[in-house]
């Protein structure tokens, strides 16, 4: 796989290092001369000095032979431009852009960027969802953070113990995907009763994640 990374700083260095260790071919474009020579010394990557929003620089970086482009400069406007140029002029199918303003995620999708991700959103949702929730065993965001998949263990103080799913009326746009009870896996139905120590795999949206947890865990969160 050929990956083109645009940006600088430690994140680019470590990303490139990770990709190289997986056997990918990595090309980096960076605007700072000093950083370019540093990266070229440290990594077995092709490093190009220049502004990747200039189509000539992308050509020099052999953009047409890339499978993926990853634009992670600190400027949203540059990341958008790089992804659009890569797709329209060089036919790169997979374009990934970092967005600083979380609201730009949606716009970037609309404008043809395959994946736009916001570290602000990722970190804030991690903090919101992880803080103080010991019973939440694992959690990962899917679909670029628009869906949360969470596993929670029901404590004995939970207000939903002994109740069926129909009785607890989950908020809209949330789902108990399955229940892990002892070593059994249950795909729940409306009449399924919840017991202490049941582990529920929840599918929620970021906006109703909190309310769903509150409903299931009571004041334990």
């Amino acid at each position: 796989m050929n990956i083109l990374i645009i940006g600088g700083g430690k994140i680019v260095y470590f990303l490139a290092k990770t990709f190289l260790s997986k056997g990918y071919n990595v090309t980096i474009v960076n605007r700072k001369k000093v950083e370019c020579s540093q990266l070229a010394r440290q990594l077995k990557a092709i490093v190009i000095f220049g502004n990747a929003t200039d189509p000539q620089v992308l050509r020099e970086a052999q953009a047409a032979s890339m499978d993926t482009v990853l634009a992670i400069t600190p400027n949203d406007e540059d990341n958008l431009m790089i992804c659009q140029l890569s797709k329209l002029n060089f036919g790169i199918q997979k374009t990934l852009a970092l967005v600083n303003d979380p609201n730009n995620e949606e716009i970037f999708h609309k404008l043809g960027v395959t994946t736009a991700f916001s570290t602000t959103r990722m970190i804030s949702s991690l903090i919101e969802q992880r803080s103080g929730l010991d019973d939440i065993v694992s959690l990962f965001p899917a679909a670029e953070g628009r869906v949360n998949i969470t596993e929670v263990a029901l404590p004995k103080e939970s207000p939903v113990i002994g109740k069926s799913l129909t009785e607890i009326s989950l908020p809209e746009h949330s789902l108990i995907g399955c229940i892990l009870r002892d070593s059994e896996v249950i795909i729940p139905r409306g009449e399924t009763i919840l017991y202490t120590d049941d582990r529920l795999v929840l599918i929620t949206l970021p906006e109703n994640h909190g309310p769903v947890l509150k409903l299931l865990m009571g004041n334990n969160i």
Binding site: T53, N75, D76, E77, D78, L80, M81, I107, K110, L111
Partner: peptide, 13 residues
């Protein structure tokens, strides 16, 4: 690049 991005948002959004 700022102009182009803002322009696209103005048009599409």
């Amino acid at each position: 690049n700022v102009n182009i991005m803002a322009g696209q948002i103005a048009k599409n959004n």
